[in-house]
């Protein structure tokens, strides 16, 4: 069978589908001071998984606000800088009007994912941290 670390090199998704892969990628991103990119990506996935119903309405609103505040509000943050202005104002509108939709972070997540696929992920595969691991 293919060792996990070789599968990590196939695609970003195969890396993010493995706990050890995530940990190593996160260590690398932390060194580059951009671990927020990965945390935001997972936060978006986790948010989408929360089903809208009466019992968790308050939690979803609180969480949407927390994600917005931590990653999007500060225009100098690593995540915020990679998200298009239109996408940011869409999310801001959703939060302000309390229109909390499971898909409200999807576009932002796609933009961050594309950035990782084109930039941090290929750099990671050439990094000492990955090569030493293999």
């Amino acid at each position: 069978p293919t060792p996990p670390y070789l599968r990590w090199a196939e695609s970003l998704h195969s890396l993010l589908d493995d706990q050890d892969g995530i940990n190593l990628f996160r260590t690398f991103l932390k060194q580059e001071e951009c671990a927020d990119l990965l945390d935001f990506w997972f936060a978006c996935s986790g948010f989408r998984k929360l089903e809208p119903n009466e019992s968790n309405e308050e939690k979803r609103l609180k969480l949407a606000k927390a994600i917005y505040k931590k990653y999007i509000l500060d225009n100098n943050g690593i995540v915020s800088r990679q998200i298009k202005p239109a996408t940011k104002s869409f999310i801001k509108d959703c939060v302000m009007k309390q229109q909390i939709d499971p898909a409200m972070f999807d576009q932002a997540q796609t933009e961050i994912q594309r950035m990782m696929e084109e930039n941090t992920y290929p750099v990671f595969l050439k990094s000492d941290i990955y090569l030493e691991y293999t």
Binding site: L16, D17, D18, Q19, I22, D39, F42, A43, C44, S45, G46, F47, K49, L50, K59, K62, L63, K65, A66, I67, K69, K70
Partner: peptide, 20 residues
């Protein structure tokens, strides 16, 4: 009551794959 950070951390963890 969960603090915002706890809520966020719980959300991030919930999206990660479980250990195989």
């Amino acid at each position: 009551i969960d603090s915002e950070d706890d809520l966020l951390q719980e959300c991030i963890t919930s999206a990660m794959p479980k250990k195989k």
